[in-house]
């Protein structure tokens, strides 16, 4: 290593030798080669992961003839944005489908939190007979996915004449044992003094639940809501079972209907439709990345 020596004069006029040397690298700092290598590898990975999005967008702009002839070119020669997106929004009631998605997801996560929070509070902080049995049922619920019990739920919905309704899309998911479990863990960490003070102030247990517990469990509730919206926006298993009408379709089901209606190889319009149904969640994600990643990490489960 080279050492630079520079002589300076201090105030007393004595020559002082100050050694300046290249800063020794910290052990956990990467060398330039390693930094470049890291970026190159990560960029290649990111390119592969993002490739489908690029192609989706690009193809949704291309005319049908070009889709079959353009090869690997991402930039369309003949733009067909209007034609493709018009098809995507008119062959199926796309706006209605997107609104269905928003409505169903919001309704599900609202009900889930509305029902789960009081139950979680009671399980975490109150003593009552049957508490252990209830908790056992919740653990059971964590083990049994909706897919597995869809058969009796379908039979019941059919018998109750609920097929092809919003209710059948929402009701089976109003209970999230996962939310109860998650909230219970969070509520256990709320200081006891806070809840005792609220009782001293004369609040009822229900009031404590909404006015003391909810604000404290808010980050967990947001995480859960995001996780829930992602899961239900994506779910196609249940909607496919109980919905057969275009106007009630959720976004993924709407896309399947669109594919069925198109049948052919009109990839431009098909990609336009996929852009339409996947954009809301992606945009939502890009605006709230941190909350999204936290939501999925802390809940640790997906789908």
């Amino acid at each position: 290593m080279s050492t630079m020596i520079s002589a300076t004069q201090d105030s007393a006029g004595v020559a002082v030798v100050v050694r300046k040397r290249p800063r020794a690298a910290r052990f956990d700092e990467l060398s330039t080669t390693a930094r470049v290598l890291r970026l190159v590898v990560l960029f290649i990975g990111a390119a592969i992961l993002l490739l489908p999005y690029a192609w989706m967008l690009s193809t949704s702009f291309k005319a049908q003839s070009e889709v079959f002839s353009s090869g690997l070119s991402l930039i369309p020669q003949h733009w067909a944005i209007v034609a493709n997106y018009t098809k995507a929004f008119t062959r199926v009631p796309m706006v209605q489908i997107l609104l269905n998605g928003v409505f169903v997801c919001l309704a599900i996560s609202t009900f889930q939190i509305l029902f789960a929070l009081p139950a979680a509070y009671a399980l975490a902080r109150l003593k009552f007979r049957g508490r252990d049995l209830l908790f056992g049922c919740i653990i059971l619920g964590l083990l049994v996915p909706i897919h597995a019990v869809s058969i009796p739920l379908y039979a019941a919905s059919r018998w109750l004449n609920l097929l092809n309704t919003y209710a059948v899309l929402i009701v089976p998911f109003t209970l999230s044992v996962f939310a109860i479990f998650q909230f219970r863990q969070v509520i256990k960490t709320i200081p006891d003094d806070l809840i005792q003070a609220a009782r001293m102030d004369g609040m009822s247990e229900m009031a404590i639940c909404w006015r003391v517990v909810l604000p404290n469990a808010w980050p967990a509730a947001t995480s859960f809501a995001i996780f829930s919206v992602v899961a239900h926006w994506n779910d196609v298993y249940w909607p496919q079972i109980v919905i057969s009408q275009n106007r009630l379709a959720t976004p993924p089901l709407g896309l399947l209907f669109f594919r069925a209606a198109e049948a052919g190889d009109d990839y431009g319009a098909l990609m336009a439709a996929t852009v339409a149904v996947s954009a809301p969640l992606v945009i939502f994600f890009l605006f709230a990345q941190k909350a999204f990643i936290e939501g999925v990490t802390s809940t640790g489960l997906k789908g």
């Binding site: 040397r21 690298a25 910290r26 052990f27």
Partner: peptide, 23 residues
């Protein structure tokens, strides 16, 4: 050696270790 100094010199048993890594 877990952090690097901006300036100055460190000697251990007579050996200049200012640019030597911790290990």
């Amino acid at each position: 050696g877990l952090d690097a100094a901006d300036e100055g010199e460190i000697r251990i048993a007579g050996r200049d270790v200012s640019s030597t890594r911790a290990a």
